[in-house]
Design a protein around this nucleic acid. Structure first.
Lengths: 147, 147
DNA sequence: CAGATGTCAGAAATACTGATATGG
DNA sequence: CCCATATCAGTAGTTCTGACATCT
């Protein structure tokens, strides 16, 4: 699995380029996070909780674009490793808000740095203006499909 | 699963926007292809064979960013449905080049149109210049990570 | 009642790993 | 020998679907 595709990338659609870039990023993140003992899904969960403490399983699943079932397994794994804590019983409703523990915050710090390096490598060919434009165009595309 | 994420999208990284757009596109393509009895993976396989007749399983897997095992299952399913044909024995080497059948070409025509509509909806907010820039930036990002 | 949440279970598709064999 | 290809087997993680119960 090392030979380049024979298909002319010039004819590639935006959708194909989108999948290509996302696949490459996922693989690069996976390789960067493996030494830290984290999967991409686990990192995303920690990152979301770092930015929005108290998110519930359903909220995390939506933000990470995975199912509630998958995120539930991620949460249990991280909780078992002591990287996050959830109340045993719901305070109100059925929501069980998760929060990072001390160890979880430390693991997130290292993982964030590793991912930052990967993203910087990905964006190296682009200037500041192109980066902002890329992010805005991607957000607009997503909004056009979901809205 | 219908409430919008509470996380501020302005702080989102390019990587997050990339995943967001790719996830939205995949879901939209899945919905558009379902009435045609095709999965996204099956459509990608047909599209690649339509552009490059004679591609092998390994080549298709690379171009579709999936494993050979997964692509092999897709190929068998499409072959069983009579949408493509593969020689029973290899002519040279171990390669088994696949080609679309008459039915496969017809199915591809409908699927391509359905996906074209989806992609047009995704790119509707963008002008021609932005679309070209987006595609080039994505290709550059992928190349920066894999190269 | 509608909607959001958490949970459980089964089926399906996919990926990863390792191994074998063939051919250039 | 090195590499690409095809294939098989086992393991694991993910998705999908449907269902049920609880709480606002």
């Amino acid at each position: 699995m090392s030979q380049a595709p024979s298909w002319d990338p010039v004819e590639a659609s935006v959708g194909y380029a989108l999948k290509q870039a996302q696949s490459a990023l996922h693989q690069a993140m996976d390789e960067a996070l493996r030494p830290l003992g984290l999967t991409v899904a686990q990192y995303v969960c920690l990152e979301l909780l770092g930015r929005s403490p108290g998110l519930t399983n359903a909220g995390l699943a939506r933000s990470a674009f995975v199912t509630r079932q998958s995120m539930n397994l991620v949460l249990r794994g991280l909780q078992r490793r002591g990287l996050l804590s959830r109340p045993a019983v719901a305070q109100r409703g059925r929501a069980l808000p998760s929060r990072l523990t001390r160890d979880g915050a430390r693991a997130l710090r290292d993982a964030t740095e590793a991912v930052r390096v990967v993203e910087e490598r990905m964006l190296a060919p682009l200037g500041a203006a192109s980066r902002a434009s890329l992010r805005e165009c991607l957000a607009a595309c997503a909004a056009a499909l979901t809205g």
